[in-house]
Write a protein that binds this DNA or RNA. Structure first.
Length: 493
DNA sequence: AAAAAAT
C-alpha cells in the first residue's frame, strides 16, 4: 500500500516561548530515530532536508528558550508541504484569523504549528500522527484544523474531538469557543451537564452543532444508542492524548469503534493523533492502524523539558513523605504559584487531602470517584487561584493547562499497571512526562519533586533517569534550606 | 489491587 510513497524528512528545532504562545528557534540536528529506520526498512524513502523551517534567530530572547530539539517530519506522499511562517499562509477565513489575533493574541505559528498546520488544512487532508512537547501549542493545531474544515452553512456535526477525561473536554471546548468566536461555529460537549439528576439518561434531540468534543463512552452512546450524533458529515476526527486513546490499556477499543462508525457512515474522514508521548508499542500500533498518515515525532531524550527542574527526595519512610511535603515543600511552594501533588490511587488522594487539611493546609483534591459537579467545582476554584495546592490522581496528569502551576510533586512515582503482582513494577515514563509537564507551561519555569521511599521507588526513578537520559539530582529530605535553595536554583524562589 | 469512561 505504501510502496511508492516518497517520504521527506525535515530536521528542525523547537523552542519555547512567551506567555501566550511558543516562539521557535533554529538549530541544526542530524539524529535518526528508530522510527525513521523502521520506515526505511518498510521500503520508504527518506529525502533529506526537502523543506526547512527558517526563523530569525534574533527573534527569541534567551530566557524563553527550551533546549533545542529535533523534530522529525515524515510525509506520506509527495505533497510538497511548505511550513507556515504566518497564519496568512494557511488560507484561513477572515473570521478565524480574527480569532487567532484578537482573541487568542497569537502573532505567528509556533514551530509545531508551522510544521503541522499545512498538512492538516490543505488538500488532500492527509491523516496525521503528531508528537510535540507539553505546552508547545498542540491544542491550537487540532482546534484550528477542526475549525478551518467546518462549513459554517452546514448545520450538522462535521468535526469530532475525543479526549480521555472530562476536564480535558472542558478545556478544549473553551479553546474552541475562543478561537472560533467570530466564525459562528457552534459546539457540543459530553461534559455539559444535561440532566444532573439522571446522569446516564439518553439524549433525545439530535445534535446540530458543527463541532463535537467528548469522552469516548458518551460519544459512543450518542452515536449508537441515542442516535443523536449523526456522523455522516464528519470529515475530521481528532484524538487528543492519542497514545492513551490508542493504548490497549486505555481507550483503544472505544477509539477504533468510533473511527469505524464514522468511516462507515461518511465519506473520507481525516484522522489526527496528537500527544506529547508515544511509547514504541503504541507508536507502531498507530502507524500500522492509521493509513497513509504523515508523521511528526520527537526523540524521547529530547522530550524532557529542561525548563522544568527535576529533583528526587529520598525519605526514610512513608510517614516522612507527609512531613517533607508539609515542612519543606509547602513553605517554599506557597510563595511561588500553584502546585499539583500526584498520587497513585483515589483513596490516597482523599487520605492525603484529609491529612493535610487537619494540619491546617488549605488544599483540594480531585479524582475520578468524585461526582462531576465536585470535579467541576475543584477545577473552577483552582483555575480561579482560590486554591494553591491540588492533590490529584492521574485524571489530571495529561493536558491540564494552568499557567500558574510552577510545582509538581510526585508523591507516588508513576508505575504501570501490571497484572502480574510478582513482577517488578514498571515505570510509567509517559505518565511521568505528562505529570511534570503540568508545570512549565509554554516555556515558563517549573520544578518537579519525586518523593521516594522504597528500593523499588529508587529503582524506578533510576529507570526514568536512564530512559530520558537525564540526571535527576537528589535533595536531602531533612535539609532545612535544601528545598528553598533548590527552588532558587530553578529560578523560582 | 488500579487512573480513566461508563454501564
Amino acid at each position: 500500500m505504501a510502496e511508492s510513497e516518497a517520504v521527506m524528512k525535515v530536521e528542525d528545532t523547537s523552542a519555547a516561548s512567551k506567555a501566550t504562545e511558543p516562539t521557535p528557534s533554529k538549530k541544526d540536528g542530524d539524529a535518526e530515530t528508530e522510527n525513521i529506520e523502521e520506515l526505511e526498512m518498510k521500503g520508504l524513502k527518506i529525502v533529506e532536508n526537502v523543506d526547512d523551517i527558517v526563523d530569525e534567530p534574533g527573534h527569541i530572547k534567551s530566557e524563553e528558550l527550551i533546549e533545542p530539539e529535533t523534530i522529525k517530519k515524515v510525509v506520506a506522499d509527495d505533497t510538497p508541504y511548505t511550513s507556515a511562517k504566518s497564519f496568512e499562509d494557511l488560507n484561513l477565513s477572515q473570521e478565524l484569523l480574527q480569532g487567532l489575533y484578537s482573541e487568542m493574541k497569537f502573532e505567528k505559528p509556533s514551530k509545531i504549528q508551522a510544521a503541522t498546520l499545512p498538512m492538516i488544512v490543505s488538500p488532500p487532508y492527509q491523516n496525521l500522527i503528531a508528537q510535540a512537547h507539553n505546552g508547545s501549542g498542540k491544542t491550537t493545531c487540532f482546534v484550528l484544523g477542526m475549525l478551518s474544515r467546518i462549513d459554517p452553512q452546514l448545520k450538522a456535526p462535521q468535526a469530532l474531538c475525543v479526549c480521555p477525561t472530562r476536564e480535558l473536554v472542558n478545556q478544549n471546548e473553551e479553546v474552541v469557543t475562543r478561537m472560533g468566536r467570530y466564525t459562528g461555529i457552534t459546539t457540543a460537549s459530553t461534559a455539559t451537564v444535561e440532566t444532573p439528576s439522571h446522569l446516564y439518561s439518553s439524549r433525545r434531540e439530535k445534535i446540530v452543532d458543527q463541532l463535537v468534543i467528548g469522552t469516548p463512552g458518551t460519544l459512543k452512546r450518542w452515536i449508537t444508542k441515542d442516535k443523536a450524533l449523526d456522523t455522516r458529515n464528519i470529515k475530521i476526527l481528532v484524538f487528543d492524548e492519542a497514545d492513551q486513546m490508542f493504548d490497549q490499556d486505555g481507550f483503544q477499543d472505544d477509539s477504533l469503534r468510533l473511527w469505524r462508525d464514522i468511516n462507515r457512515s461518511g465519506k473520507s474522514c481525516q484522522v489526527l493523533l496528537f500527544s506529547a508521548t508515544f511509547s514504541e508499542k503504541v507508536k507502531s500500533f498507530a502507524m500500522k492502524t492509521i493509513p497513509k498518515a504523515n508523521y511528526i515525532f520527537v526523540e524521547k531524550e529530547q522530550l524532557s523539558l529542561d525548563v522544568i527542574r527535576q529533583y528526587q527526595i529520598v525519605c526514610p519512610d512513608s510517614r516522612s513523605k507527609i512531613d517533607v511535603l508539609k515542612n519543606r515543600i509547602f513553605p517554599a511552594a506557597e510563595k511561588l504559584g500553584q502546585s499539583i501533588i500526584f498520587v497513585r490511587t483515589r483513596g490516597a488522594a482523599s487520605e492525603l487531602h484529609k491529612c493535610l487539611e487537619e494540619d491546617g493546609h488549605k488544599c483540594t483534591s480531585i479524582q475520578g470517584g468524585l461526582t462531576h459537579e465536585e470535579r467541576d467545582r475543584v477545577i473552577k476554584e483552582f483555575r480561579a487561584g482560590e486554591t494553591k495546592i491540588l492533590i490529584a490522581t492521574d485524571v489530571l496528569a495529561r493536558g491540564f493547562d494552568q499557567a500558574q502551576v510552577t510545582l509538581v510533586v510526585n508523591y507516588d512515582i508513576p508505575v504501570k499497571n501490571t497484572s502480574n503482582r510478582h513482577a517488578y513494577a514498571e515505570p510509567d515514563y509517559e505518565t511521568y512526562l505528562h505529570r511534570i509537564g503540568r508545570s512549565g507551561r509554554f516555556g515558563r519555569k517549573g520544578a518537579a519533586f519525586n518523593l521516594l521511599v522504597t528500593q523499588e521507588d529508587k529503582r524506578i526513578m533510576r529507570s526514568i533517569e536512564q530512559h530520558f537520559n537525564r540526571n535527576v539530582p537528589e535533595v536531602a529530605w531533612d535539609n532545612e534550606e535544601g528545598i528553598e535553595h533548590v527552588l532558587k536554583d530553578a529560578g523560582l524562589a
